[in-house]
Design a protein around this nucleic acid. Structure first.
Lengths: 355, 355
DNA sequence: TTGAAAGCGCTAACAT
DNA sequence: ATGTTAGCGCTTTCAA
């Protein structure tokens, strides 16, 4: 395999605008004008410059441009974990919209570490990223609001924009762009659907304290029950992480302690995957014996058995909107807050309650 | 929501090294030394500079640094589609290794368009990305070798490195780093496993002409059959894209035309998902009536029903290795080619052939 | 329409 | 240990 030492500068043929200028017999300024294309240059001259660029295999130095322009045409995408179940679809939305707007896309992961999140945001300030998109919810610790508000101001001061995607707005007058979706409404609709199928004892698996995503879903669940005059049984609400493994364990527990329920509302599809596995293992049929629903509508959902009835979240659109709003805000000066709707997707995991 | 017009330069407080220097009562060079940390600075001075930086909320301008350093500490990750089933795990490997080596990660998508791939590689040249990692296989058209060789040289000339990840090496003396995995061996092992379970009529679903990934897998399949003195029946090998939908259709066809087979080897797990769906729909039990296996070991595989026996590909390690090799090549001057092993993962979708 | 020159923010000799 | 100076490659006045 051919190699060339990274240190072997002599062999590097990075052409500059000057070399192109010399070859085309014009000044560097003219070459710059041809590149930029926003300034009148005689057709003949332009042709010569173009040819020189081609012959020398010239490519502009984006860093030099960014230095002058004081912006880097870059959007940063900060996420907990790239392998997260819906990361991919938000990422697609972000990437496509960024590309459509002529921007490049940086990706970083925090692994849920607030310190790392902070460090990354500063790194993005260094990069002069035009927008820093934080994806997914995080538990709101006491310091959270303060810390994020500071970061938002710091980014704003650097000409960059903090974007919260799938996370509620910060309190107060903070420079932020927020794109969230309706957790409460989705959970309400789903719970109502289960109720109308006759289920009155619905276990809610995977609630997380302080996580707004979780709180919203719980509220929707409770509102639907109360609307029918049904009690909210704390014994049916089980705390736990948004993970497959938790769904499995929690379901086993429920079964072991012979809890009374006819349906399980898993707080996420990943949790639902674990629930289904545990039920199958225990010989409980879905949806004949127990109905199961999830939340998120990740790609996996329709491949589960039975295909999972769940709440659809418009992940790709969230990503798209995040970029669009962050980049075009000065134009319409418009609203920098958007809450997208969610809706249930009915598949095969819900049946009528057995009387 | 507080806003600040993007054009409102006056309110931007991007501090420069000069301002810090002035505030700390030193020269810009000293500040630079404090930032870099690679040069001796008196402790007292450093403290003053640090404080000035903090007070002004200074952050270095990565673009200015990159301009001087002639490199941008960036690695580019070029992929067909971010929602691809194993993208996420390669991405994790790339991102983590890049972070570990102090690099940032750019992500771009080609949507399978060769022109866009070319444009992206040039864009990465502009960015002075240290490595451009092309992920996943593509069909080798006649021009492919030539075009890629040119790009490899162009990147090399710009001090960047072309990395082929999950794609075979280019012919000839091309500056490239290649990290692939053993398609042939994996398919051979899997076919052998099916054979040893008594399956002799194994349908191979989803072969793609000219796609090296596919070719390798086919070879492994054929080698295993021939090794047992069994014929390769072209009627059991069905061409089609690596997609769920294809797996579904192809299986229906197989069933409709009453093809004779006891096992299905889906070329990818996504295809296998479609296969399982079609079989379930047709009332064919897995693995009692028909055994099914896949290739890739995507996260979905173990959530399928029955959990899918498949060939594991070390996606994350591939990503990691790609970055590591590309960045550290001059040091050991070592091999820039690596083929990782694959192995089968036995789950629940294979049973003994019925006699 | 084109060229000359200044400067973006930083680093790296070269002085001191 | 610190300051001075000269660029890195580009864009953008300002002149011509």
């Amino acid at each position: 395999m051919a190699r060339r030492s990274a240190a072997d500068g002599a062999s590097l043929q990075r052409r500059t605008i000057k070399e192109v200028a010399a070859r085309a017999g014009v000044s560097p300024a003219t070459v710059s004008r041809v590149i930029g294309g926003t300034y009148p240059v005689a057709a003949a001259t332009r042709a010569r410059v173009r040819r020189a660029m081609r012959e020398l295999d010239y490519v502009v130095n984006a860093n030099a441009r960014a230095l002058v322009a004081a912006t880097s045409n870059t959007v940063a995408f900060v996420v907990n974990d790239v392998t997260g179940p819906f990361f991919a679809h938000i990422a697609r939305g972000v990437e496509e919209q960024a590309t459509a707007e002529g921007r490049l896309c940086l990706v970083c992961t925090t692994h849920g570490d607030p310190d790392r999140e902070l460090a990354l945001i500063n790194l993005m300030r260094e990069q002069r990223a035009e927008a820093v998109i934080l994806v997914g919810g995080v538990p709101e610790t006491p310091e959270y609001q303060d810390r994020m508000a500071k970061l938002a101001h710091a980014l704003d001061g650097s000409g960059s924009r903090l974007v919260l995607c799938g996370r509620p707005a910060l309190n107060g007058d903070v420079p932020q762009t927020v794109v969230e979706y309706d957790n409460e409404g989705g959970a309400f609709a789903m719970t109502s659907y289960l109720l109308s199928a006759g289920h009155e004892r619905i276990a809610l698996l995977g609630t997380v304290d302080g996580l707004p995503t979780s709180t919203g879903r719980i509220h929707g669940y409770e509102r639907a029950l109360r609307g029918r005059g049904l009690p909210v049984d704390p014994g049916l609400m089980v705390k736990g992480p948004f993970a497959r493994e938790f769904g499995y364990r929690a379901t086993r527990d429920l079964l072991d302690r012979k809890a009374e329920f006819s349906a399980i509302f898993a707080m996420t599809d990943m949790v639902a995957a674990g629930v289904l596995f545990a039920l199958r293992e225990a010989g409980v049929r879905v949806p004949d014996d127990v109905s199961v629903v999830g939340f998120d509508d990740i790609p996996l959902a329709e491949d589960l058995f039975p295909a999972l009835t769940t709440v659809h979240v418009p992940h790709e659109e969230l990503g798209r909107a995040a970029v669009r709003m962050a980049l075009n805000r000065s134009e319409h000066g418009g609203g920098q807050y958007l809450k997208m709707g969610t809706h249930i997707v009915i598949r095969d995991s819900v049946g009528p309650a057995r009387s």
